[in-house]
Design a protein around this nucleic acid. Sequence first.
DNA 1: AAGGCGTGGAT
DNA 2: TATCCAAGCCT
Length: 345
Amino acid sequence: MDAKRRDVAAPLLDWYDRNRRDLPWRAKAGETPDPYRVWLSEVMLQQTTVATVRPRFSAWIARWPTFAALAAADEADVMAAWAGLGYYARARNLMAAARVIAADHGGALPDTEAALRALPGFGDYTAAAVAAIAFGRRAVVVDANVERVVARLFAIPHPLPGGRRAIRAAADTITPDRRAGDFAQAMMDLGSAICTPRRPRCLLCPIAEGCAARALGTPETFPVKKPKAARPHRHGTIFWLERDGAVLLVRRPDKGLLGGMRALPTGPWGDAPPGLAEAPAAADWRMLDDGVSHGFTHFTLDLALAVARTHHAVNIGEWWPVDRLDEAGLPTLFAKAAAVVRRMA
DNA sequence: AAGGCGTGGAT
DNA sequence: TATCCAAGCCT
C-alpha cells in the first residue's frame, strides 16, 4: 500500500499549521518570507543543528541584514563570523554567491530552482528548499529528515547513499503543487520531533496510517544505511609562539581543512609521534604535558602543544593580542588549544 | 563517485 | 567513553 499524495500532504499540512516551530528565519503564517533570511538559514543549517544555528543566525542578521550588506562585507570578517560553525567552505561560498547576486542578478536571488542551483553553495537540497520556501515554487526538497520520513513511509529497502534515487522519486509523488514550502518545512519538523532516528513517536504522527515501515513494526530500521569506515587517529603539533603579549596566528590555505581560517601554526599531521617539524621559528620550544584531541568527520586529531617566547620578527602571519584572542575567529580546534595553553601557563 | 570537509548534542 | 547524527556541497 503506497502512501498517496492525498493521504500525506493534507494531514501533514494540517499538523504543521497546528505545530510549526517558531524559528527566527521562518515567516509567520501569512507573512512573506525574506529570501535573504531563507538562504542564510538554509546554508547555516547544512549539517548543523537548529540549536546551534539559532543564536548565530540572529547575530549574523544584526550585522549583515541584506544581500547588499553581505556583498560589501570584508571577507576576513565573514570568515571570522563563521568561526565555530564548521564546514567553512559554506562561508566562502556564501560570499561568492553574494557577489554573483550583486553583479548578475540585480541584488536579489533568482527565483527558480534551476537558476539557484547554479550559484556557489547551492546543491540539489538548498536550491529546492529556497525555491519552495522563499518563492513558493513546487520543488522536491530532500534532506536527511525527508529521507528518513520517506524511507519509512514507503519502507524503501535500498541502503543509503545509493537509495537516494528511490527516495527522491517517492518524495516527488507526495509533494503537493501548492504550499510546497510549508510541506518541506512540515516534513523537516516531523522528522525532528516525531519521526526521529532512534525511537519514532508513531502514536503522535499525523501520517502514521499510510506508513509502510510502521505496518512492518520496524520503523526505526529505516532508512537502511551502509556501514561507515572507522575513523583513524592522526597526530601533530600546534605551536604557540608569544611575543610582547601577542601570539602568532597564520591564515590557512583557502582549500582543505579549515580553509581560509585564522589558525595557530601547526606541523604536519600523520601517524608519526608529535615533534617540532615545521615550527614557525627557531626558538626554545617546550612541549606541554597536556594536548588537544579533536574529532573531525573523517579522522580524530591528537595534537601536542609546543610553546615558546621570542623577541624576534617572524616573516609569516600576524601577532594577535592574547587578551583579545576571542575576537580572532579561531576554529574550535584552535580555541581549545588556546584554552589549554592559557590554563597551563 | 567516493571521500574530504566541523562541530556539538543526544544516547 | 564511544558512536551516531544533523535543514549537504564539492571534486
